[in-house]
């Protein structure tokens, strides 16, 4: 997590102009966003289908994997984390993975996963 300290003057013309340039660089078009949304919708349909169709032993892992895929698609593309400054990823994923770690451990002490 090292950064170079630079005197930042580029942004001095106003946040809006700066923000505009930032988005242009990311190259996600409206078309791209709609594609992502379609994939998300398809996964959701698949998730809901598990309620009607018996997936057998695949049921739980499949649901969890689909959940994680949807989660990271929204975070990476809709929230721009994939294209943005790595610092944002550090901040957010620190919280996310810490949360997963401590709460899974806490539930583990209740023998939650053995039931």
């Amino acid at each position: 997590m090292t950064m170079h300290t630079t005197e930042h003057t580029a942004a001095s013309h106003g946040d809006s102009a700066h923000g505009g340039a930032e988005h242009a660089e990311h190259g996600m078009s409206t078309r791209g966003y709609i594609n992502i949304a379609l994939i998300l919708a398809a996964i959701t349909a698949l998730e809901v289908s598990t309620y009607y169709v018996d997936f057998g032993p695949l049921f739980l892992p499949a649901l969890l994997i689909m959940m994680v895929v949807k989660f990271f698609m929204v975070v990476s593309y809709f929230m721009h984390l994939k294209f943005d400054n790595k610092l944002f990823s550090w901040m957010f994923y620190a919280g996310l993975f810490l949360a997963v770690g401590v709460y899974v451990a806490a539930l583990g002490t209740f023998h939650f996963f053995l039931r």
């Binding site: 997590m1 090292t2 950064m3 170079h4 300290t5 630079t6 005197e7 610092l87 620190a94 919280g95 810490l98 949360a99």
Partner: peptide, 30 residues
């Protein structure tokens, strides 16, 4: 701490009190 350091002050040139406070803020945050 991340955004408003004086020019030239890299993270490893920050006074140690600032460092410890930063660690504490992350602890508080989470």
């Amino acid at each position: 701490v991340l955004n408003m350091r004086a020019p030239g002050m890299t993270l490893m040139k920050m006074p140690i009190f600032t460092w410890m406070i930063t660690v504490v803020q992350f602890l508080l945050l989470f």
